[in-house]
Structures are given as structure tokens and as C-alpha cells.
Design a protein around this nucleic acid. Structure first.
Length: 459
RNA sequence: GUCCCGUUCGUCUAGUCAGGUCCAGGACACCGGCCUUUCACGCCGGCGACACGGGUUCGAAUCCCGUACGGGACGCCA
């Protein structure tokens, strides 16, 4: 039987990094096994579900290159199926109507808490047949009453819970809508899911769900409960995929970094999406929680900034430049700028900031730099530099470099005395790539224009 | 409170399933140096961990038990 997995987020918010990791592991397992990756939106929370979040989730997965093979399925579309299934279970005697009020249940929980017991429904209506007419009721599933339930989890190993810990939970609310622990099973059965891969916060739910599979006459799928990621609070990682995209992170880096939260392959740190698909397996997934480290994520991103083809990176960079007010297209010059600048930036946003001076000559001269490097006595050298550059026929880094070197030799001046004023004139500060590359990346006209302007402004 | 899970450098982790090759390896971050026309990159080096206590064993990061700490679950949320 071929592998079918599903990612089943609720559309009550954007796709944050924790959920993204879950989606990723589902995706990777599906790809590794030649299986099918299904997306199912759990939109039964009438109060909090929003359509825009469903759209955002699909969009985020698409950006990551992890679009589902099937779906998105919507639970709301399947309402009839749930009602029908509940009726069947009622008919079979696998479930029953419970007429307890929320208040009575609350009292039950309080009493249990006061006595130090686990709060659970006491089964009052499990065997009663004296159903009051016209009163609201919920439907509960009958849990086994003795023994234990064992789940052989692909990540957590064999985990056993005594059925004493479980109670007859509600599968249909008094308003007729089904609850999560029920629909998730019905859906997974109907969609023929073979492997349920989700966060470890669902491990306990699994023990409730197993009897539902049995009541439905279905076999249970394999389970893989992934350790949770700590500290996904506002600043760290609860930011959405779109937030990171807008901050200039690359999808390859998101996949790479997230994969390493819980999974590893020896000492290797950098994995392409394809490698991830090839190497992923639950044998290498740990059981302990990890925490999201923005610093390391940034480092992984810098690695991907360096690994992509320059032209490809340039293409992805364009929207950021546009956002900064620079309307440019991918051309030779832009690609050259990418090659020159990319290892100096961790994100596309930083790349934009670091590269501003290539797109505008409106910048302030850095005061300290000017003070240190612009001296009255240095003027003649810069003047001669400009003269010699003007005569240059071939405008590339080698030729430009030749001019600096020969001038330095002829006038017995160190490189810094020519390079630093050049940097300040062209970029406003002394922080830049090699001057030869810098000068050559500008057009000859623009480089000379800025040098002359600098001569006038600075000396 | 009850049940479930976890615990190797600050962080992600290798090693744990098949105990010795681990006075514990890699990566991020941090610190120092080198390279050098600045900054960055790169390179080299440093700092830094087997939660604690018992047990098994010739030998334990690795196996067993307990304790502590952390997380999760206990909803007519998903």
C-alpha cells in the first residue's frame, strides 16, 4: 500500500514555524516514500476559523515548494459524512447519547480535582435508556473499560496508557457538530491516511482515537509524534512563514533549518530540499524538544544565499529592491552586484540595505570615515586617479586594479590612501567590497561622476 | 493533582537501539589570531555539556531503578 500522509492545520491563524516543521516532515516522508502529501484544513472551529488563513496556508506551502498533492480538503464540506457516521455508531451501540449539562460536567471535574483524581466523565449515560424527550444531548463514544492501549509510535516508541485514564469523550456536540478527536479519525480513514505525522501534543489524543478507529471498523495508521519546538513565542518563530519570507529568508533555508529541529544526519548541517527528501526518515528523528534559534536560522540562510545561482538569487531579490523603491530588472549588472554582495548579507533584506549605494547616489558621507581618510594632502592623488581612470578603455576589475596599482607605485602611496577615499566617494562609507570590483561594477560614467563629486564635496 | 514524554556545550545536535575506539565529535553564537585596500567572507585556535543519586558490569553518555527539572495532555478547542 502506498504511503499517504496529511498535514491538517486549522485555519485559525497564519502558518507559523512549528506547524511548518510538521508540514515539512509530512512532505519529506511522502517524498521519501514516493507517497502522497494531502492537505486538509480543519475549519470546524466556527468561532475562530477565517478564510484568509486557509488561503495564507496554501500560499505559504506553495512558496516553500511543498504544495500538497491532494487537497486542500475542507472539513466543513464533509459535515454530512460526520453526522451519518455518528448515527452509525449510535446504531451499533458504539456510542451513546449523554444528557448531562455543561454545568453538571463542570461540577464533576471540580469534584474530581478536589479529590485529587483525574477529571473525567463518569459514564452516567453510558447504559441508561431513560432518555428525556426533547432535551439537548451530546454523543459520546464508548471507550474500552478495561485493559490498556498501546501505540507503537515511529518516533516515541511503544507507549502504553491504561484505559482508566480515558473517558467516554464527546464526538458530537449538542448543536450537532462533531468534535476534533472524532472527525480527525473519520477523515484519516476516509482519506486512507497511512501515517499520521503530527506534534507530540497529540500523543495523548491518540489513545482516544484508537478506539474510534476500532468502532469504525478501520485499521489504525502508523503514528509519528514529533517533539515540540520550545519558545515559539512572538519573537521567535511564531512569526509566520510569510513574515520570514518578507524578512528576506529563502525557502531552501526555511526547509533546511526546520528539518534540523528534531532530525539530523550525522554532522551535516546544510541540506538541499532534494537531499532532505532522499535522506529523511523517522529513525533519525529525536524525541526531545528543541528550540528555535534565530541566529542559527540566519546562518543557514547565509549559506543558501551563497549557494543559489547568482541569477536565481537576483530574481528573488528584485521584489525586495522594488519594495525599497528601486525599480530594476535582472540584468548583467544586477547579477554582478549579487555576486559581489551576497556573502555580506544574511537575508535579502540585508542585501538590499548593504547594496543601496548601487541604486542611488543619495547617501550621507560617514563622518568618521571622512575624518580618518580625507586629508588635504591626499587630493592630488585622487585627482590623478580620476585622470587615469578616464583614459581607461576596458572597464573591468583587472583594468581598474591596474590603474590603482600603477598609480600607487608611481606616486609611492599605499593602497588605502586611494581605496578609502574611493569607497567614501562611491558608497559614503569605507565598508564595501574590493575597490577594484566596486569601481568596475559601476558604469565608468557613474564611477567617475561620484569620484568627482567626492572630490568636490570632501576635500 | 493524575497520566504521558523528555533531559549531551548558551542553542541545534553526533554518539545511546548492538556498553569499551568518547577525559565526548560537529554546527550556530561568543572570544582571540591570520588573511587584507576597509567591511564582510574564508582559515586557524579558544571557551563550553553526558541533570542528580543508586544499581548492573572488569568497564556506562550508552542498560536498570529512583529523584529533580522541563514539556505535553486531561474542553460541547483543534
Amino acid at each position: 500500500m502506498s504511503v499517504r500522509v496529511r498535514f491538517a492545520p486549522s485555519n485559525t491563524g497564519f502558518l507559523h514555524m512549528g506547524n511548518t516543521r510538521t508540514a515539512l516532515f509530512n512532505y519529506l516522508f511522502a517524498r521519501n516514500q514516493g507517497g502522497t502529501f494531502v492537505l486538509r484544513i480543519e475549519d470546524t472551529d466556527q468561532a475562530r476559523s477565517e478564510e484568509r488563513f486557509a488561503d495564507a496556508i496554501v500560499e505559504a506551502l506553495e512558496w516553500l515548494g511543498m504544495s500538497p498533492d491532494e487537497g486542500p480538503y475542507r472539513q466543513m464540506d464533509r459535515a454530512d459524512r460526520y453526522v451519518e457516521t455518528v448515527a452509525e455508531l449510535l446504531e451499533k451501540g458504539a456510542a451513546y447519547k449523554c444528557f448531562c449539562t455543561p454545568e453538571e460536567l463542570e461540577a464533576m471535574r471540580e469534584k474530581a480535582a478536589a479529590e485529587g483524581r483525574k477529571p473525567k466523565y463518569d459514564g452516567t449515560w453510558r447504559d441508561r435508556t431513560d432518555h428525556p424527550e426533547g432535551e439537548p444531548y451530546v454523543v459520546r463514544i464508548k471507550m474500552p473499560q478495561e485493559g490498556s492501549i498501546t501505540v507503537d509510535d515511529l518516533v516515541q516508541g511503544s507507549v502504553t496508557v491504561d484505559v482508566e485514564e480515558l473517558d467516554d469523550f464527546i464526538i458530537q456536540r449538542s448543536d450537532g457538530t462533531p468534535t476534533y478527536n472524532f472527525v480527525v479519525v473519520v477523515d484519516d480513514v476516509d482519506m486512507e491516511i497511512t501515517h499520521v505525522i503530527r506534534g507530540a501534543d497529540h500523543l495523548n489524543n491518540t489513545f482516544r482515537q484508537v478506539p474510534v478507529y476500532e468502532a469504525l471498523g478501520a485499521t489504525t495508521p502508523a503514528f509519528a509524534h514529533l517533539p515540540l519546538i520550545d519558545g515559539l513565542s512572538k519573537r521567535k518563530g511564531s512569526a509566520s512563514v510569510q513574515d520570514y519570507r518578507d524578512a528576506g529568508f529563502l525557502p531552501e533555508a526555511v526547509m533546511n533549518y526546520l528539518s534540523r529541529l528534531g532530525w539530523s544526519h550525522g554532522d551535516q548541517e546544510i541540506f538541499s530540499p532534494q537531499e532532505l527528501c532522499d535522506l529523511f526518515g523517522f529513525d533519525s528523528v529525536g524525541r526531545s524538544p528543541s528550540s528555535f534559534d534565530e541566529d542559527k536560522f540566519r546562518w543557514v540562510n547565509t549559506e543558501w544565499m551563497k549557494r543559489l545561482e547568482p541569477a536565481e538569487l537576483a530574481t528573488r531579490w528584485v521584489p525586495f529592491l522594488k519594495n525599497a523603491g528601486f525599480e530594476v530588472e535582472v540584468d548583467e549588472t544586477l547579477v554582478a552586484i549579487v555576486e559581489l554582495m551576497r556573502e555580506r548579507a544574511a537575508t535579502l533584506v540585508e542585501l538590499t540595505e548593504e547594496s543601496r549605494y548601487f541604486f542611488t547616489d543619495e547617501f550621507e558621507y560617514d563622518e568618521k570615515a571622512v575624518k580618518k581618510w580625507i586629508k588635504e594632502g591626499g587630493r592630488p592623488v585622487v585627482e590623478e586617479l580620476i585622470q587615469r581612470l578616464e583614459k581607461l578603455d576596458t572597464w573591468d576589475a583587472d583594468s581598474v586594479g591596474g590603474v590603482y596599482k600603477s598609480l600607487g607605485k608611481d606616486r609611492e602611496v599605499g593602497m588605502a590612501k586611494m581605496a578609502q577615499p574611493t569607497r567614501i566617494s562611491l558608497t559614503g562609507s569605507t565598508s564595501s567590497p574590493s575597490v577594484f570590483d566596486l569601481v568596475a561594477t559601476f558604469s565608468k560614467d557613474e564611477a567617475l561622476r561620484r569620484l568627482r563629486r567626492g572630490l568636490a564635496d570632501l576635500f
